[in-house]
Design a protein around this nucleic acid. Structure first.
Length: 590
DNA sequence: GCCGTTTTCGGCCCGACTGTTTTCAGTCG
């Protein structure tokens, strides 16, 4: 059973307990669910290694929940949970996806009308049975029907690459509303999470009504969830919910902190405040009634005895502890990448010529980019063979003579075959500046086979960078089965860099893997994987993901100037080769 | 049910908006 499945069960237990109005226990189960979701090892593995004691060491898991988890792991079932489900057999996941339905209302709907699913709910609403229930009325019934129609059309989360431009557009409109003094994007977008549930905007204005009126009457609004003087919430055509809060200027920092989240980070901050005899809310830090901080986030963190914590780290994965110990990493910044090492052109499946890609990259301020078209075994992308690759190298040499202000590197995205061999010969690879290697086929291998395959390819002395190491496409394709810890160890041993593919559908490596790689001292590169000139600006998503993975500038090779970059890339590989060679010698000597 | 530079017992984050209420519960973030 996966951690996600276990977490889901704990959350459902919390919901059932909430239905029964049992105090405090629901929070405990939710907290445990959250903690288990955030683990980087499967819980059943933790249990196998350390028995129940290790399970109890998960924060938020005590004796009672640990026992239940053990039952769940050992038998795949949990009688306590089954019992709750039997008592109220409702489809929690479905029903709570309807805006405005929580535990209490779900209970009334089930107790009074026997509603278990969204289909049941829709039937009852259409038959006019719902508005007769206590605490429901005409409006609730209409709202439920509206919610069901949204439920049927939409997935609940969107890739950040889809949502960011939409929110930026709204931001630009709101900035122009008279009276708006400050405006900021908050929420999970500001934390650069890979998928986003809704958009959060924060404003300071001396005419709040005017901002709110403008906000709810924008042409793209299709539904107004709520409108008040400080908070409004809408749904826009693309199906995304957007919230706008208006706060006084002296509360802007506290509000920005609060609306940026994450929720778990906020709760931790509030507990620290309580510990100091203070109170933290979106309006500021208070001692009694008296505000002592709130205008800026820096001020708020300082009042709690903390340095500023970058939004990308606010996931309650140890950032507050690190901040307290003054051990926060100095994260790579958004303007620190000098090069881009994965771009495709119209030589294979890209849409633009090498010249056009170079011109756009130069315009964006890059100092160098590698042209890494596909290789021959990727037939569908017109992959190059050795001969064509050499022809392209010659073309790049010619272009470099003409180009000013940017250098093109000769590269390739070399295909890893099923057994871990590369599909371009070593002589040709040796002539390339940047050899990226990547898996594009046989995604269904076992974890052992896939891990062996990729590591074997990394052991090729010419392989510089492992491109998109897990092969996932967000919300479309799961990562292939691979032992990422073994890959990280292999990267370290062979001196191969791991890519953070910045293409917003990939973000691969993802944040938590980056954190492991950084801790292991493995070098990273951040690439756009551009197939179009517009994609070259995707690097920002990669930088954000690297920051979420606690990466510093020094962890990322393409923050270096060209010569230092190339030296570093090849040195790493050289050291890896010698180390490997050294091991072989020892073995022979035995 | 969990947890402890305030605690092994007694707390558990805080506030806005809606709808159905006539003083507030439920939901959301």
């Amino acid at each position: 059973m996966t951690n996600a499945e276990i977490a889901r069960i704990l959350r459902e237990i919390a919901f059932f307990l909430e239905m029964e109005e049992i105090p405090f226990k629901p929070r405990a189960y939710e907290k445990a669910a959250y903690a288990i979701e955030a683990l980087d090892a499967p819980l059943d593995e933790i249990y196998r290694r350390g028995r129940i004691k290790a399970v109890e060491e998960v924060p938020g898991v005590g004796r009672s929940i640990a026992e239940k988890l053990v039952t769940l792991i050992e038998t795949g079932k949990l009688p306590y949970y089954e019992g709750l489900r039997l008592k109220s057999p409702v489809d929690i996941e479905q029903l709570t996806a309807i805006e405005g339905l929580g535990p209490k209302k779900v209970k009334v709907l089930y107790d009074q009308l026997g509603i278990r699913t969204v289909d049941d709910l829709e039937r009852a609403a259409l038959e006019g049975k719902i508005h007769q229930l206590p605490h429901f009325g005409e409006k609730s019934e209409q709202k439920i029907l509206k919610g069901i129609s949204f439920f049927k059309k939409s997935g609940s989360r969107y890739p950040i690459g889809v949502i960011l431009p939409v929110i930026r557009d709204i931001e630009r409109l709101l900035e122009k509303v008279p009276g708006v003094k400050r405006l900021a994007v908050a929420g999970s977008i500001r934390r650069w999470k890979e998928t986003i549930g809704d958009g959060d905007l924060l404003a300071v204005s001396n005419d709040p009504d005017r901002v709110m009126d403008f906000f709810i009457s924008m042409p793209e609004v299709i539904y107004i969830h709520a409108k008040g003087p400080t908070k409004s919430s809408i749904k826009i055509k693309s199906g995304i919910d957007v919230d706008l809060r208006v706060v006084p200027e002296e509360s802007f920092g506290a509000a920005l902190c609060y609306f940026t989240g994450s929720k778990a980070h906020n709760i931790h901050l509030r507990k620290i405040a309580i510990g100091k005899g203070l109170k933290l809310s979106e309006y500021g830090v208070f001692r009694g009634e008296r505000p002592i901080a709130g205008r800026t986030e820096e001020e708020v963190y300082a009042a709690l005895g903390l340095p500023f914590i970058p939004p990308e780290l606010r996931e309650e994965t140890g950032e507050i502890e690190s901040a307290l110990a003054e051990r926060l990493p100095n994260l790579i910044d958004y303007d620190e990448l000098r090069g881009d090492l994965q771009t495709q052109t119209n030589w294979t499946d890209g849409a633009y010529s090498i010249e056009e890609m170079a011109a756009e990259a130069k315009r964006l301020g890059r100092e160098y980019i590698a042209i890494t078209d596909h290789t021959k075994s990727l037939a569908m992308a017109k992959g190059s063979d050795e001969k064509r690759l050499r022809k392209q190298m010659a073309a790049i040499d010619e272009l470099n003579k003409k180009l000013r202000g940017i250098t093109l590197l000769k590269g390739a995205e070399v295909n890893i075959d099923k057994d871990g061999r590369l599909d371009i010969d070593d002589e040709t690879l040796a002539r390339l500046d940047v050899v990226g290697i990547a898996v594009h086929s046989h995604f269904g291998l076992s974890r052992e086979q896939m891990t062996r395959r990729v590591i074997r390819a990394m052991e090729n002395p010419h392989a510089d960078i492992l491109f998109h190491p897990t092969g996932r496409i967000i919300q479309k394709r799961e990562p292939y089965e691979i032992d990422i810890d073994a890959v990280i160890q292999a990267a370290r041993r062979t001196g191969t860099a791991l890519e953070v593919d910045a293409f917003p559908d990939r973000l691969d490596l993802k944040d938590e893997h980056i954190r492991k790689a950084v801790e292991a001292g493995v070098k990273l590169v951040i690439d756009s994987d551009a197939h179009h000139i517009h994609h070259l600006s995707y690097l920002q998503f990669g930088i954000a993901t690297a920051r979420r993975g606690w990466a510093k500038r020094s962890d990322v090779l393409n923050t270096l100037p060209l010569n230092a970059f190339l030296a570093s890339l090849k040195d790493g590989k050289e050291r890896g080769r010698k180390k490997h060679f050294g091991v072989m010698q020892v073995r022979k000597g035995r």
